[in-house]
């Protein structure tokens, strides 16, 4: 039996829209479900207190600090390296064997699962370099993990800057570096910023790699060589070991709000960037 094309069309379009609808509903459901269960338990004390009896009571302040330190440090180290790589790839070289190798490295790094980063960070930073399970081991591991994202987004942002701007800058007597810093980076900054913020979000969400490198100490880290538990890992431990479901929901809500805020901010930056490049 052969259906009339118009009938098939209607059926397929309905099906496709239904699938799109299901996807969006699933996303909305996840966010609303977590927030509905978690928001009522978030209070000033919860955010500002230390956990008591393994996190059954008390708050999550040390984990907020831990997440901020590990993720912040990772992005702080990865951003200059990633942006410099992007500048090198776009402004300082021609496509050749070397750029192919660099791109291959970044592409492969982007595909490596976080648990492998965790294993590597555990032997290399924690054991071989003697940093132990610590904030700095976790941060350096995440640095490698987010580096490809920052390279990729920065490169795209830099390539979007019109070629004519570069000629104008050379025309009035700038060196290459002056052209890069004063014209290209200035125009590409919102795009680069978007990549950096998304990387920050990814670092905050990361669990497996952090678990093997930063450890899970409940105390407030006193130095970068102290172990520290991040929010995502705390949420995992609370829910998996069934320590406290209410605190798990509340911790997840804090995580989700942070990710939502970062995504919205990145989106806003990006729309500004698109407006400006035009």
């Amino acid at each position: 039996m052969r259906l009339h094309p118009a009938t098939t069309e209607r059926a397929v379009v309905t099906l496709l829209w239904a699938m799109a609808g299901i996807t969006i509903c699933a996303l909305a459901f996840i966010i609303i479900f977590i927030l509905a269960h978690g928001l009522p338990h978030i209070s000033r004390e919860f955010l500002a207190d230390s956990p008591r009896s393994m996190g059954r009571e008390g708050g999550i302040f040390p984990m907020i600090v831990g997440s901020a330190l590990v993720a912040g440090l990772a992005v702080l180290i990865a951003a200059p390296i990633g942006v410099a790589t992007a500048i090198y790839l776009t402004e300082y070289t021609r496509e050749g064997r070397l750029t192919a190798v660099i791109r291959f490295g970044a592409d492969c790094l982007a595909g490596i699962p976080s648990i492998i980063f965790g294993l590597f960070g555990f032997v290399f930073f924690a054991i071989v370099l003697g940093m132990g399970l610590s904030v700095i081991s976790g941060a350096l591991t995440l640095t490698l993990m987010v580096l490809p994202t920052i390279i990729r987004t920065s490169e795209e942002a830099i390539r979007a800057v019109p070629q004519a701007y570069r000629e104008v800058s050379y025309g009035v007597g700038s060196t290459r570096w002056q052209m890069v810093t004063r014209v290209v980076l200035r125009s590409a900054l919102p795009g680069i910023g978007t990549g950096i913020i998304l990387s920050l979000g990814r670092s905050i969400s990361e669990t497996a790699a952090v678990m093997l490198t930063a450890g899970s100490a409940l105390r407030m880290p006193q130095s970068l060589l102290d172990s520290s538990r991040t929010l995502a890992l705390h949420f995992y431990i609370l829910s998996r070991e069934g320590i406290s479901m209410t605190n798990a929901y509340a911790t997840a809500s804090v995580l989700i709000i942070a990710i939502l805020a970062l995504n919205l901010f990145a989106y806003w930056l990006m729309s500004r960037f698109v407006a400006r490049v035009r």
Partner: peptide, 12 residues
């Protein structure tokens, strides 16, 4: 945004 949600939250 779906890509930004932590994997532990999906698991949970």
């Amino acid at each position: 945004l779906l890509a930004g949600i932590p994997s532990v939250v999906y698991g949970f």
